[in-house]
């Protein structure tokens, strides 16, 4: 059976825009959408008003609910669902996937409870070995409006990097490769925490100077942690970490950022979550703290964010506490 070059699993904003971008190079891109109502809407109106207003789906994007056919029928599968739903989908994919296929995660974050990266979940749940992760500062909303963007495909397998570049790269999106899959995934996840801290800084109206401090010291901190866990420092200064971080902190569009702003303005965590929506920074902060303690790495910013999220410390007090830390050398 001849397979489709690529299929996307997940009808959210990111999954839909990815399918749209792939359709520049591939005549037919199956898009698996679990939500029946959304699927019908995509099929009948060719639009996604809930998440991507203004977007008209390309003719090559084919929304479907037949997971088995989609999985069996594609060489390259992109799983673009939120991290809480990722393992369940991966398990279902594992029922049909074969060893010659490629699976790529489009989700950013670590699994709550286990701290597993998404590519590790793909290995846990399927027989596929050629896995990767797409990351970077490509924002679905901006790209739906026609803006160009860039992303990173991380994988230890050259074939994964080359296949994703071949199918995805176009005048709409540049795709960089990185062999440091661990760094791409871990760094991408850890940016959630720094973005949240930037939101707090903005919410307290502290100005751009201190936001730059949060960005820089946060990056130093997560780089230290990532390197200890086996990632490469250079990855943290690339698109999947620094690039993503700058976009999130500057745009203010991410849920993590909005959660920080709301907490800084006096909302309770529950109120803030109700307004901002589920934020990846909560499980990521918990996992990062555990990892840092296990590895004996000093992570003052992560610890401070944990105090805000889990101990109810007021953001203002937390900033004061961070500022009172003893003076150190910059590279320390």
């Amino acid at each position: 059976m001849k397979r489709e070059p690529v299929a996307v699993l997940g009808g959210g904003a990111w999954g839909t825009i990815l399918a749209q971008l792939f359709s520049h190079n591939v005549p037919r891109v199956p898009l698996w959408v679990r939500d029946a109502e959304l699927r019908e809407e995509l099929i009948t109106t060719r639009t996604h008003p809930r998440a991507l207003p203004g977007l008209t789906l390309a003719a090559g994007v084919v929304p479907t609910d037949d997971l088995e056919a989609v999985v069996r029928g594609a060489e390259l599968l992109i799983l673009a669902v939120p991290t809480p739903a990722f393992r369940d989908l991966a398990r279902r994919v594992g029922e049909f996937a074969q060893g010659d296929q490629i699976l790529v995660s489009g989700a950013k974050g670590l699994e709550e409870g286990t701290g597993a990266r998404m590519s590790e979940i793909l290995i846990d749940e399927t027989c596929v070995r050629r896995v990767g992760a797409l990351a970077g500062p490509a924002y679905a909303g901006e790209m739906a409006r026609g803006a160009p963007g860039a992303a990173v495909i991380g994988s230890g397998f050259q074939a994964v990097v080359e296949r994703v570049q071949l199918r995805l790269a176009s005048e709409r999106i540049r795709v960089y490769g990185n062999t440091d899959l661990l760094g791409v995934e871990l760094g991408g996840a850890l940016t959630n925490i720094i973005t949240f801290a930037c939101g707090i800084s903005d919410g307290l109206e502290l100005g751009n100077g201190i936001k730059a401090v949060v960005l820089d010291r946060g990056l130093a901190e997560v780089t230290r942690l990532g390197v200890r866990l086996g990632a490469q420092a250079s990855t943290f200064h690339g698109l999947s970490v620094l690039g993503d971080l700058m976009a999130a902190a500057l745009s203010g569009e991410s849920r993590n950022f909005r959660l920080g702003v709301l907490l800084a303005r006096g909302c309770s965590l529950q109120e803030a979550l109700e307004q901002a929506g589920p934020a990846e920074c909560i499980p990521t902060t918990r996992m990062a703290l555990e990892l840092a303690q296990r590895e004996g790495i000093e992570t003052p910013l992560v610890s401070a964010m944990a105090k805000v999220l889990f101990e109810g410390v007021a953001p203002k007090d937390m900033i004061r506490e961070l500022m009172r830390r003893r003076s150190i050398y910059e590279g320390a």
Binding site: G94, E95, Q98, G99, C127
Partner: peptide
């Protein structure tokens, strides 16, 4: 060969 869920693997 078996995958993590015990399914046979080609």
């Amino acid at each position: 060969s078996r995958d993590p869920h015990g399914r046979p693997v080609d």
